Simulated scan of single mutants.
Amino acid sequence: MTAHNEGPITIHPVKGKADKREFVELAFRLNRGDPAWVPPLKGEAFDLLTPGKNPWFEHGRAQLFLARRNGRTVGRISAHIDDLALQQPVEQGMGPGTGNWGLLEAEDAEVAHALFVAAEDWLRGQGMHRSLGPLSISIWDEPGLLIQGFETPPTIMLGHNSPLYRGWVEAEGYKPAKQLLNYGVEVRDGFPPLVNRIVAAGEKNPRIRIRKVDKKKFDAEAQLILGILNDAWSDNWGFVPLTDSEIAFVGKKLKDIVFEDLIRVAELDGQPVAFMIVLPNINQLLIDMDGSLLPFNWARLLWWLRKPKSKRLRVPLMGVVKSLQNSRMASTLAFMMIEYIRRDAVRDYGVEEGDIGWVLDDNQGMNAVADAINATVNRVYQIYDKPLA
């Protein structure tokens, strides 16, 4: 054991700005040697943790903790409670008494243990009897611990962590609650004949219209899409509704990386009933930026955003209103949106591959769509839970 791994571990609740900076910076220090880790923009990492910046805090509360040994910061964790999640049905994964943890970084198993003790004590003190995680604050941010797919850097808005963390989490008595799958798919040469036949049949149906979003009406389009999302996902495991202020926040965050031809809304009889959002993989730039837009990275980013070339795209969100789910119409609309975006993405952005995720491991409809387009799982995230005695 090296000298700096000896000595007592002390746990400190994050209090001021300096502590919060240490909380953010630690992830950079511990992950620097991992070629697949993509440093987030530090400004965004701070905003995620800051009431007044992140509207999650309008219905949630969090305590961040730092672990120190011999005067050095050697670990971090968040413990948090979402009041909207407490109101969800227990059988959907959240519900009364369920608190969360996330944002774990630790130098070794001993540090991880001390952090879990602190996070769980805080949750107990808040009246929680169950701990579910990891969630990077909200279920909508970066849920789950990566347990498969460490070799390649994640695409935009997908998490990455050390392979060691799984053993450390499970050693604390956490059991798997749900898996989230991310699929990779080759898109350059198109999809199998069955998919093309479904798309062609849909094109002959006068009730269906697939349209691009109108960026000039961005706020209204974001509200429309995320409104469909709240309906489409409302029966999903882990669902917590997005509030109006969160919808506005997500819209603002995505505005610069949203391209009209990479997002589709499906209308049936003139009513919007489904959507699909595809984002260019900004991570291919962030991986070299070390979390900062200064001095010249902002110029690189702006230049790239004018017309991004991206070999890989990510589908972070798609949804069909509940009234159509598990119907033939739902899969027709899904395949039409996927195919229309695929054509534009290959032609205009140089795209060769797509990422679709997260998909709940028991979401039969989405897993069937992934199978039909010959997609294969390339990353698996696991959410764990544990009763707090």
Rank of each mutant, 00 (worst) to 15 (best):
G7N: 09
K15Q: 14
K17M: 04
E25L: 14
F28E: 10
R29I: 04
R29M: 03
L30T: 14
N31E: 10
A36D: 06
L41W: 01
A45I: 04
L48R: 12
K53G: 09
W56L: 07
R61S: 08
Q63L: 04
L64V: 05
A67W: 12
R68Y: 02
G71W: 14
T73H: 13
T73V: 15
G75W: 13
I77H: 11
L86H: 03
Q87A: 14
V90K: 02
N100Q: 13
N100V: 03
A106I: 12
A118K: 06
L132Q: 12
P134T: 09
E142W: 00
P143S: 00
I147Q: 00
P154V: 05
R166G: 11
G167W: 05
Q179D: 11
G184A: 10
V187N: 08
N205D: 15
R209W: 03
R209K: 13
D214R: 14
A220G: 04
L226W: 15
I228L: 11
A232P: 11
P241C: 03
P241D: 04
E246N: 11
D256L: 09
E260T: 15
R264E: 04
N283E: 00
L285F: 02
L286E: 04
G291E: 05
F296Q: 04
N297H: 13
M318R: 03
V321A: 09
L324G: 02
I338E: 05
T376H: 10
V377I: 15
R379T: 06
